[in-house]
Design a protein around this nucleic acid. Sequence first.
DNA 1: CTGAAAGCGCTTACAG
DNA 2: CTGAAAGCGCTTACAG
Lengths: 346, 346
Amino acid sequence: MKDVSIKDVAARAGVSPKTVSRVINGEQHVRPEVRDVVLRVVAELDYRPNIFARSLSSSRSYLLGLFLDDPSSGYASDVQLGALLRCRERSYHLIVEPVDLAKANWEHQIESSIRGLRLDGAILTPPLCDDPRVIEIVTAAGIPFVRISPRGDPEVSGAVEMDEFAAAIDMTRHLIDLGHCEIGFIMGDPQHDSSRKRYDGFRYAMTSAGLGVKESFMMQGDFSMRSALGPAERLLGTPDRPTAIFASNDDMALAALITAMKFGIAVPEALSICGFDDAPSARTAWPSLTTIRQPKAEMAAASVDMLVDPFYRTRADDERFHRLLPYELIKRQSTGRAPGMDNVEA
Amino acid sequence: MKDVSIKDVAARAGVSPKTVSRVINGEQHVRPEVRDVVLRVVAELDYRPNIFARSLSSSRSYLLGLFLDDPSSGYASDVQLGALLRCRERSYHLIVEPVDLAKANWEHQIESSIRGLRLDGAILTPPLCDDPRVIEIVTAAGIPFVRISPRGDPEVSGAVEMDEFAAAIDMTRHLIDLGHCEIGFIMGDPQHDSSRKRYDGFRYAMTSAGLGVKESFMMQGDFSMRSALGPAERLLGTPDRPTAIFASNDDMALAALITAMKFGIAVPEALSICGFDDAPSARTAWPSLTTIRQPKAEMAAASVDMLVDPFYRTRADDERFHRLLPYELIKRQSTGRAPGMDNVEA
DNA sequence: CTGAAAGCGCTTACAG
DNA sequence: CTGAAAGCGCTTACAG
C-alpha cells in the first residue's frame, strides 16, 4: 500500500514529473488543457506531495515557528490559533516553541529549533521580541522574523501591533466622560513595553482633560491577577479612594473586582473598573468587564502573511511590513457614571 | 554557507556515512573508539541531521499530532505544553491541530493533517476521542493513536486517564467530613464522559454515607462559567438552599462563588464550594477554590511516551498502554465546616 | 563491526 | 510551454 508519488501522476497523465510539479505549485507556463488533465489525475489518485521530499530538494521547510514566553496564557492561545489557521490557508505548518528565559538552555533551545527544523521564519511575541539576546540568535540563524507588539526598533524586522497608547486614551476618556476624576491605575509588567504605552495613554488623557494624576493612585502589578490584589486593596482600603480603576489588563481588573466585592463596594454604582485585552473572563465576570479588545489572532495571522511573502526577506523595512491593527473599546457592565453624577444631572 | 552533511562528518572522522548514521541513531555494533571519534566530529562541526532527508528515506516523520476540540481552553494549554516538552525530550515534534466538529470540512482537515504531514501518531483529547467518526478516520489513516480520558472501549487504543469516579468520591467525602449533608451538584457537559463519572462518584459517596441525593439540588451545566450562573442562582436563591456546592469544574465553581457574593452568602462560613481541575483561576479566586488537580500535562506526556514506544503499534492493548495517573485533592479556602457544626463541637 | 550501492520523492538548473 | 538529468541528505537492504 505505497503512497502515490509524482511519477504515478505523471505516468497516468501522460506528462513528465516536472510538469506535474509545475501544476502542483501553481507555476506559470503550463497549457490549460495539460493543467486540467494533471489536476484531474491528482484528484483521482488522491495524490499528496511528500513534504519531506519537497523540503529536502527545495531547502525550504514550509515551517514557521511561534516563540512564546508563556504558552499557557490566554494571550498565547489566541495568538497561536490565529497563526495556526492562517498557516493552514497558506499551506504552511506552525511549530510552537515555548521559550523559558529563566532556564539555562533557552538559547540552545531556540537555535536547535530554528536550525534543526530549518524553520522558514519565526514569529516573536512579547517579551521575547524585546530581548536583544533573542533578536541576536534569530538574526544569526539567518531566518526572517516578525515581531508582535515590539518595543521600538522599527528597522530590526517587520512588526504587527495595535496602538496601545491610543486605546488607553480612549478608555480613559470613556471614564472621564462618565464623570470620573479620581482614577486609580494599575500598571502591568514593566518588562512589557505595552505596560508603559498604556500608562502613558492614561496619563496623557488625564492631563489633556485638565485632571491631575494622583501618584498615590498609581500602582504596580505584573499582569497577573495575584499581583494586583495588593494594589487593589491599597487603592480601595481607604476612605479617600478613587471612583474608578483602570487596570492594565483584565486579570488585574478581575482582582480589583474581587477586592471591591470583599470590601462591599458596589460595581459599577460606587466604583467603575475597566481592563484591557478582552480575555474570556472579562465576558463572564460579574459584572462583565469594560475592556479593550486586542486583535491577537489577527496580529498573528498578519505575521504569517508577512513571513510567507516572498518580498519580506529583502524588504522587511517596507511600510507594508509594519502594520497597525485596529482595536475596539468594548463597553460592558463594570463601568458606569461616577457616584454623585446621577444627582448632578437629575 | 552550506550546512554540514553526514558526508562531511564521515570524511572528517574517517568512516563511512553509514557509520555516522549508526552513531547518530544510537544503534548497536559500533566500536566505542569509533563512536567517540564520530561524536567529537559531530560536536566540532555542529552537525545537525537533516530531518527531511531522514524522514524521506525512513518514511517516518518524527511528527506527532495533538488534536484539540477547543485549542483556546486552559485544558488545551496544559495538555499541549505537556506533550510539547515530552516530544522535545524524545526528539519528536508536535503538530497541534484544532478540530472544529461544527465545521463541514473537519474530516478532511484531520485526514490531510495525518496523511499530508505523515504523522507518526496522534493524541486524541475529549470530546474528539469519543467521537466514532474521528476514531474511524484516524484508524483508516493507519496511524497509532492514544486517547486521553476516553469513555469506554479500552480495546480501541492505548489510553491515559485519571480515576474521575474516585476523585469525585474523595471530594464528596471531604464535604461530608466537614459536616455537610445538603450538597448541591452542578454537572458538566453531558458530551464529556467525565461529567457522568464525576456525577456518579458524587452520588456513590452520598449514598454510601447514608445521605440522600436531593434531585432539586442536581443542576446541569456545560463546564462553562456562563452555563453555571443560572443553576447557581436556582440553588442559592431559595431559603431551602444547600450548605455546599460541588461544581464539576472550576469555571462553574467560580460561577457559584460569584453568585454567592451577589446574594451576600459568605464562603466558606455559610456555604462551601468546590470545583474540579485546578485551573489557574481556582488558585487566584477569592476565596481560593478547593479542587481536584488533574495531571493534564503528565497525561499528555504519557501519551507521547506510548506513541514513541516501538511496541505500541503491535500491542496497544497491553496493560502498560492503559495508564491511570494519580490526581490530587487540593484543599483551599472555599470549603469549611457546615454552618452550625462549630457550635455542635463547642 | 563496517561499508558500497541504491533509492526515498521531490526540485533545481538547463536545454530545447 | 515541456522534459531529461542530477542532486538534496539521509536510510534501507545487502554484503562481507
